[in-house]
Design a protein around this nucleic acid. Sequence first.
DNA 1: TTTTTTGCTGCAATTTGTTTGCGTTTTGTT
DNA 2: AACAAAACGCAAACAAATTGCAGCAAAAAA
Lengths: 137, 137
Amino acid sequence: MDKNNRSSTYVLKQAKLSNTKIRKSILEFLMENHGPFSIDEIHKQIFDCDYATVYRCIKKFEECAIVSRCDFGDNISRYEYKDLNHHHHHIICRSCHKISTVEYCFLKEMEKMLTDQGYKDVSHALEFFGICQECQN
Amino acid sequence: MDKNNRSSTYVLKQAKLSNTKIRKSILEFLMENHGPFSIDEIHKQIFDCDYATVYRCIKKFEECAIVSRCDFGDNISRYEYKDLNHHHHHIICRSCHKISTVEYCFLKEMEKMLTDQGYKDVSHALEFFGICQECQN
DNA sequence: TTTTTTGCTGCAATTTGTTTGCGTTTTGTT
DNA sequence: AACAAAACGCAAACAAATTGCAGCAAAAAA
């Protein structure tokens, strides 16, 4: 367990999920790499693991709020580790599909308005789309 | 053409799309009804029209920025008419999946930051998730 | 209007992303 | 170590989305 209590094993235990080899691998991959990844990309990284297992693991992770799902409009679900200390969004180039992170976020205020209206456990998903500088040439 | 130049025919012409019976029907349905609709829901509304055609029309509409795509996390794409005079977002109940609109939006400022960084044609997609009051009982 | 061209549509088949059932293996617990 | 509960691999099933093609309707040209 690392000095920040942020090892994959710790996170799994915290979420009351059993600590299997594959879950550990998937979670480690997601924790060590930033971008959101498709099921396909995750599957490529994990040695000797079935697609169904990737789907099942990611679904569990999502239920436990360990990872969050991103939709970039291409009918491919992507997932990333939900680092609570590092809330951010994405900006995706409509041309090359490069993904960068958007660090700032004004949405906490909006969420507050919604809880004031009576909603509970409010969260949000936000993606930006644009044409990046390289693609403009 | 209505007094606001917002008839389906006008919008199609504006977008340089040919004005077929089906496209007109789909667009009219989307313009007259608020919520985002799945391909299935749209298909049900259009008389004597193939699924493939709905997909193709909606894809065209999306390319021309007439409609925008929403992702509510259930792997079903939903689409709604992009009324430029009525920019808004959604709040979806995680329990009953009821969709309400969120009228306010602070994101124009964020988009501006991104264009200042060099991105072009920036847009965004934002959904909120929460448990609505009815579901809390 | 008539002709020509362009592009939309229906149908059926296909591709692709995701889920499920089931027998076997692994994990956590006593 | 023994056992129950849960996870895994495999293959089949499912559902959303896409594609090829022949026929047809809409737009442009004559």
